[in-house]
Structures are given as structure tokens and as C-alpha cells.
Design a protein around this nucleic acid. Sequence first.
DNA 1: TACGGAGTTTCGGAATACGAAACCTTATTC
DNA 2: GAATAAGGTTTCGTATTCCGAAACTCCGTA
Lengths: 275, 275
Amino acid sequence: MPSAANAKRQSSSSEPMSSTLRCLQVFQALADPPYELSLTEIGARLRMVKGSAHRMVRTLAAAGLVDQDPRTKLYRLSPKAFWAGTAYLRNSPVYRAALPLLQSIAYESGLVVSLGAWHERSLLYLNSITPPGLAHLVAEIGERWPVHSTALGKAMLAYRSRQEIDALTEVDRPRYTPKTIVSAAGILQEARKTRARGYAVDDEEMIQGVRCVASPIFDSEGAAVAAISISGPVLALTNETVEERAALVREAATKVSMQLGYRPAARGRTPPAAL
Amino acid sequence: MPSAANAKRQSSSSEPMSSTLRCLQVFQALADPPYELSLTEIGARLRMVKGSAHRMVRTLAAAGLVDQDPRTKLYRLSPKAFWAGTAYLRNSPVYRAALPLLQSIAYESGLVVSLGAWHERSLLYLNSITPPGLAHLVAEIGERWPVHSTALGKAMLAYRSRQEIDALTEVDRPRYTPKTIVSAAGILQEARKTRARGYAVDDEEMIQGVRCVASPIFDSEGAAVAAISISGPVLALTNETVEERAALVREAATKVSMQLGYRPAARGRTPPAAL
DNA sequence: TACGGAGTTTCGGAATACGAAACCTTATTC
DNA sequence: GAATAAGGTTTCGTATTCCGAAACTCCGTA
């Protein structure tokens, strides 16, 4: 009786499982603030009836990835989701190679040291080391930040392909402070400067009063996949000390690149992001 | 035509989506070492034919949670999975409250400082701060460790319910070093000692040459949901200095508990894990 | 050039998920 | 304290989606 002369093909070929995809949308919806959602809210955001939303959170709960607050009834990601997601870190050659160096630089500089990776045109924070007293200017593990206004992002962007930069700057990027560079021309110019001096600088372009320097990490294919930064209040990271801090991150980033199999003098590799 | 007199009920009530559950099993399989699996291996582990395994990794890939290494063809968790999973951390009151304190203690003590949470009878590492040179004795973010042989685990276990302890110690726990306490009686005795002195000690019970002290964090309901520890080589964490290190973690853990709304002198709360 | 191993796609049949609506539970209002 | 409202949970029939088996393709090897 069903499918009586169904007009539509069951789909051309190996389509992903649609019901599972919708369920994973629920999962990902819980990964953004406010991190805790009611059933009704989930249904509203993802355009599904309450019953379906309920089935999906129950499925995620059955898999252990989602918890429900007994008091508020709100759904949120569980510790198991954290365990599973962080497998990426534990498996990441960049992270494993960089972590010890981050600690060293943090103690040497007394400032915030961060490791970020390139992910879908944004900067993904992998970890930060923060000396006491500077906790307020720290990005959280796993947070995504813009690449045009952070030192970590700019360090990677400067060594990405020209097409990637152009795609990013098709329209002006968001402004966060008066110093944020938002235009395509400005961002391209910044990339040029970054390559010229060998490190990227964020001079209060993301957060007022915070300055950062960063240097990119290259994988064995020469792609800028990550970066290391030192951040601090403008009073601590003055123009006089920027150079030596930059030297710290450059040295560390180079070491990590080497461990990843990057060889700077490789055979005729085209310099990235040619202008 | 289908369902022509189907003998089996479609299931009593809101069952979770079975196909999605199997797909999430694939996701979780990638969260354990070796972290990268081939299609055939996934199929073998989860008892599914290749075609099904393929549909599932394609679905996870379509959701962005899984990547395939272009060279090796192996599947692994993606940065997006990391972003999603770490939402648990960003949303965690314990983590937010404890992180600044961890940094302080790490700088004060010069040793490794860790934060762990109770999760399904095991210890889940949320983060660690490691001074230079001690990187080798650090547990990774998101790793799960046993509760009977780690200071973090023992600190929480000592304040859990008697039933929970008994359930855990039904059979002897795994031994990792000659000093590991594996019997039910020994673990119970340890819990008693921990409560008596106010902090837990791991004296080379997990890793030879490494000693740790830890103190539990209580939520507003009085449950020991997390703990803070200081770890170091036995030469650095000597008997003479254990007391003062323990004082550091106790003070920090108490502060975090307070921030979570825990009130030690609450109305007639039954002391946990009564003997 | 044949072979082997692994990944990918196809296909029909049958079990599974969807949506709508009813039901239940908890908090709020008068 | 009863009525109400808002949200969470369950039921049910239909038709859509998923499962398994097997064929196909790709790539490196003998």
C-alpha cells in the first residue's frame, strides 16, 4: 500500500541518514550558548514538532551524550560528549607537540599563551595557559573566534592561499574595536606585513586593552594549520617587548612545525598566499 | 504490502532511534585509541556490514563531526567534534569557577595541578596546568582514569554514598603498581582516612614515582562532583611538603564549592558515605 | 595482466521514524 | 485552593527511511 507508485526516487545514491543528521543538529545546537535548551526551544530552532524533538534528545540521552537537568528540565551536553569530543585533541599531533612548549613559554613570559587551529575559516582555540591574574582575557577551550581580528587567526591567514583570503574578505568583516581591520585591502595588507616580519600582531583589534603576537605552525604539506600566541594587557605587552615575545612564539612554532614533518627548504614549494 | 500483519509491536513507547544510536556508536568508537579507524575495522568492531558502516561515517562526515584522512582513508573525529564536545566545559560551573584557581596553585606550587570530575564511576580529566619539565606525568584533557588509584578519584570517592563505593568494589580493582589499593576493604579504609585528614593521597598507586594530593569539590546538593589535585615526582612532593600542598588544594576546592552554592553547615544533611 | 584488499554504490524488502494530537505534570494566577 | 496555562511526554497510523547482501570500482602488488 505505501509507496504506491512513489513519484520520487528513493534518492540517487548513498545519501546520509537524514534522521540521524537531524538528531546531530540537536547535538550541535547544544554546543552554542546558552548551552542549555528546553524541548520547546529545540523544536522551534530546528523546525520540528515537539514529539520529534523529544525522540531525538532521548536518543542522544540514550547514547549518553546529553543530560537533562532534573530541576530545570533543560537539556545539555554531558561529560561523555566532552570525553568524545576531546578525542580530537588527544589524537592531534599539533596539540601533543605544542603543549609542553606552551607551558614553557607561559612561565617564561608571564603572559597568556594560547594554541589555536584553523577550522572552517575560523580560529578554534585548543588550549590556553594563563598566569594568575590574567584569567579575564582568556578564550575558552573549544571556542571559535574570528581570524581577521586575532593574532592567532592572522598568523594562519597570512600563509593561507590567496583564494581563501579573498573568499573570507568578500564582504567587510565584523568590527570589534576601533582598531579592527575590516576591509579586504586592509586584511591583505596585514597579511603582507605579517609575512614580512614573521609574526602576526593583534593590537587591540579584538578586545580593548589586549595585545597579542602569534606565529603559525605548518604541517608536513606546508599548510598553516595552527598557531601559537602570547597575549597580555597593553601595559604588559609594550612595543619594546613585542619583539622578544614574538621570538618566543616563533621559536616554539617552528619547533612544532618541524615535529610535524615540515621542512622549510622543501623542493620548489610555492610561497603561500602569493600577492 | 509492507507491515502485512507484523507480528511484533513497533515497540511499546518512545524508543530511541535505533539507527541513530548505532551511528553514535561509531562516533564513540572513534573517541578511544587508536582514534583512527578504517571502514572495515569499524564494521568489525560494531558488527555491521561494510555498507552500513560506510553510510554511518558518511552521515557523521556530513554533519561535520568526522573527517577522513585523504591519504590513509582512515576516519577520525574532526575539529567540529572537539568544538561541540567542549561545550560541556564552557557550560560547566565547576570548570569556570575552578580554572583561575588552578592557575594560581600551579604557579604557587610549581607542580602539576589538575581538575577532574566524577563521571560514571570514573575520573574525567577536565584540565591540567603543568609547569615546564613535568609534562610527562600529565593526564590528557578528556581522558578517563580509575577512581581507586588516583588522588582525584579517591577524593571524590570518599564522599560518595556507601552504595556507590560498594558497587565499585564488588570485585578487586585493577592494580597498576605494587602500592595500588585493590580490595574493597582497603578502598573503604582509604576513604575513611581521606575524610579524616580532609584530603586524598595517591602515593605511587597509579604511576611509579608520582605522588598526588587532592581535595573534593561539592555542588549545592552536597555531592562530590569534582576535585582538584597537585601532582609531582616523589622527590618534589615529599612527606614534609604534602601537608602544605594539601592545604592549597583544600582551600581552592572549598572556594569552588562555595561558588557552586555549597554550604557546609546546611540543615541536617547526612554525612556522605557513612560507615 | 591477473590478483587481492579495501572502499563505495546499488537495490528490494521491511522495519523505522515522522507528524499530529492527545495526555500528563508542574508552575502560576485569581 | 481551583482553574489555567505552559511545557514535557506518549500514542498511533502511514509512508518514508534504513538494513543487508552483493555487485562494482579503485588502487597497489605479484
